[in-house]
């Protein structure tokens, strides 16, 4: 739900301000790749109506966000491709593919894709964090969006602890990816929490 909320916050922000200054389209592209790799199972496995609906919403809203930022004026006119230039194709996709291949539980296409998607998701926030570090001053809605985008993984960790004790559930790759992902946010969270505590604008060092 937090993940969904962060997407809705971002959509709302783009529609309201008609600007995507401070938003990394490259992060959304990473997520689009994550979702395409992971949700291939839409075609051959049914888990629940909730699960299917969320997958469809995540994929379609993420592609819509990319479309808005890259191609749909007036938002696309504000997209700064020079600032948002983190080369994830080299730095994230390659390593995620290699890790996906060597850490997959079995060497099948769905399993390798699923594993690669977990590793890629764990670092997908990097283009967004690096963009914000260049700009330093973070708009309120952008700060809420990034905070919820990080918080959802932290709540997964709580759920994993619960499921471990309640059902003996084990998910080593998911756990490791989730810890890396949450770890990357800790620094941002700190500055976000401080800005909220003192009621000031979020400014990154």
């Amino acid at each position: 739900m937090l993940h969904l909320m962060s997407i809705l916050l971002l959509l709302w922000k783009l529609k309201k301000s008609k600007s995507c200054v401070g938003i990394s389209c490259r992060m959304q592209e990473c997520y689009a790749i994550v979702f395409c790799l992971r949700y291939l199972d839409l075609f051959y496995q049914f888990i629940s109506v909730y699960n299917t609906a969320m997958k469809v919403v995540f994929i379609s809203s993420t592609f819509y966000l990319i479309f808005l930022m890259r191609f749909q004026p007036p938002v696309s006119a504000t997209y700064d491709r020079t600032a948002d230039s983190f080369p994830y194709e080299q730095y994230l996709l390659g390593p995620a593919a290699v890790l996906g291949f060597i850490s997959a539980e079995e060497w099948s296409i769905p399993e390798i894709f699923w594993t690669a998607s977990i590793w890629l998701e764990s670092v997908s926030i990097l283009p967004q964090l690096i963009l914000l570090q260049q700009l330093r001053e973070v708009e309120n809605l952008t700060a809420e969006f990034v905070a919820t985008m990080g918080a959802y993984r932290f709540f997964y960790i709580l759920n994993w602890i619960y499921r471990y004790f309640a059902e003996g559930y084990v998910n080593w790759i998911g756990w490791l990816g989730g810890i890396v992902q949450t770890g990357l946010y800790v620094d941002f969270f700190y500055y976000y929490a401080m800005s909220k505590w003192y009621g000031q604008k979020l400014v990154l060092p």
Binding site: H3, D41, Q45, I47, S48, N51, M54, K55, F58, E105, W114, I118, Y156, Y169, V170, N171, W172, I173, G174
Partner: peptide, 10 residues
Amino acid sequence: GKTAQGKDEL
């Protein structure tokens, strides 16, 4: 049966 690890998550 039981879902494989992580496959019932988003």
